[in-house]
Amino acid sequence: MLAQCTETWNSLPLWGKVAVGAGGVVLAGATLKNVYGVSQTHESGIICKNWKNDVVYLYQFPRSPYLPNASPFCLKLETFLRYAKIDYEVIGSMNHWSKEGKLPFIELNGVQYHDSDFAMEMLVDHFKLDHLEADLTDEQRGMTRAMFKLAEQSLCEAMIYNRFLENMDGFFKAMGFSVNFLQRAIVGRFLTKKIRARVNGAGIGRHSREEIYLIAKADLEAFSLLLGDNEYFFGNKPHTVDIIVWSVLCQSYYMPFDNLIRTYIITHFTNLDAFITRMKEHFWPDWDQMLLKKPVKI
């Protein structure tokens, strides 16, 4: 398909390339800033004017046809809200970004809070949620920080490589985007360049394909060993660390295309396979109702 797109693109007159390219850049920019925080625009001021006291307004990427959100950071923050039993409303839109130009972000009582981790910390303070993790030892709290970084700064980068640089068509399908083949050609070229720069900057992109998946497999093995025979990482009840790791694992596990990360989980790390399903059933009994029903036309 990519070869056909490229051939058609090369046959277009200059004005045609400009028209199609403009639409492609808009879509590519929206995709990058929503899913991975690459943006040059931001929202100024509070968005929800008629807010209700102590209701969280969650701004995030629109739903996906395959999981509630195809951004690990959006999925993490919404699942945390469910974990903490906080009243919230979702605004799934490509029209609102935080003051930093990123998603997700929240508004609470007329104040905007950006970054999923800072938002979660604020929610713990505001709603006095220290009891949620009060049963953890100091060692487990340290492990939570280490596992958080392993999930979101190592395994997540391998997932980004897999999703964008190896499965671009599957990515559009996963996001629920309805794009024609010309948009696919332009957006694919734009995203490939940007994502390549991102993973190279993170370091992982400078490795060979084989080495990248060896890193991903090693990360998965570490999580599998830490989980062991437990239902959750620290016993028989979920904590924030479970939400963090699960939100990243879901991004490969529920994709509508074959990928090595999911294959590793299913064939080598069956306790993670069961963990993913267990978390889904615990926090998302309404999973099917939360999926995108109609494609997003660009």
Rank of each mutant, 00 (worst) to 15 (best):
K128F: 02
K128G: 01
K128Y: 02
D130G: 12
H131K: 12
H131C: 08
L132S: 02
L132K: 11
L132W: 10
L132H: 02
E133N: 06
E133F: 05
A134Y: 10
L136A: 07
D138M: 11
D138Y: 09
D138S: 13
Q140D: 08
G142Q: 06
G142E: 08
G142N: 15
M143I: 10
T144Y: 03
T144F: 07
A146L: 14
M147P: 00
K149Y: 13
K149P: 00
L150W: 01
L150D: 04
L150A: 05
L150E: 09
A151K: 02
A151W: 05
A151V: 11
A151S: 13
A151L: 03
E152N: 10
E152V: 01
Q153P: 00
Q153G: 01
S154H: 13
S154E: 12
S154Q: 14
L155F: 07
L155A: 06
L155V: 00
L155M: 06
C156E: 09
C156Y: 14
C156M: 12
E157Q: 14
E157R: 07
E157F: 11
A158L: 04
M159G: 12
I160R: 08
R163N: 07
F164T: 00
F164K: 02
F164I: 00
N167S: 13
N167Q: 08
N167L: 06
N167T: 09
M168N: 03
D169G: 02
D169Y: 05
G170W: 05
G170N: 04
G170T: 10
F171G: 03
F171L: 15
F172H: 05
F172Y: 15
F172L: 14
F172S: 05
F172I: 11
F172T: 12
K173S: 13
K173F: 05
K173H: 08
A174I: 02
A174T: 05
F177L: 15
F177Q: 05
F177C: 12
V179I: 15
V179M: 14
V179H: 03
N180G: 12
N180H: 09
F181H: 11
Q183I: 08
R184F: 14
I186Q: 06
I186E: 09
G188Y: 01
G188M: 02
R189N: 12
R189D: 07
F190A: 11
F190C: 04
F190I: 08
T192P: 01
K194N: 03
K194I: 12
R196K: 11
R196A: 07
A197V: 09
A197Y: 07
R198D: 11
R198C: 06
V199F: 07
V199Y: 02
G201E: 04
A202C: 08
I204S: 00
I204A: 00
I204F: 03
I204G: 00
I204P: 05
G205F: 11
G205V: 03
R206Y: 03
R206I: 04
S208D: 01
S208Y: 01
R209F: 07
R209M: 06
E210F: 08
E210N: 09
E211I: 02
E211F: 13
I212L: 04
Y213P: 09
Y213M: 07
L214P: 01
L214E: 13
L214G: 12
L214H: 06
A216M: 04
K217V: 00
K217P: 01
A218W: 10
A218V: 10
A218S: 15
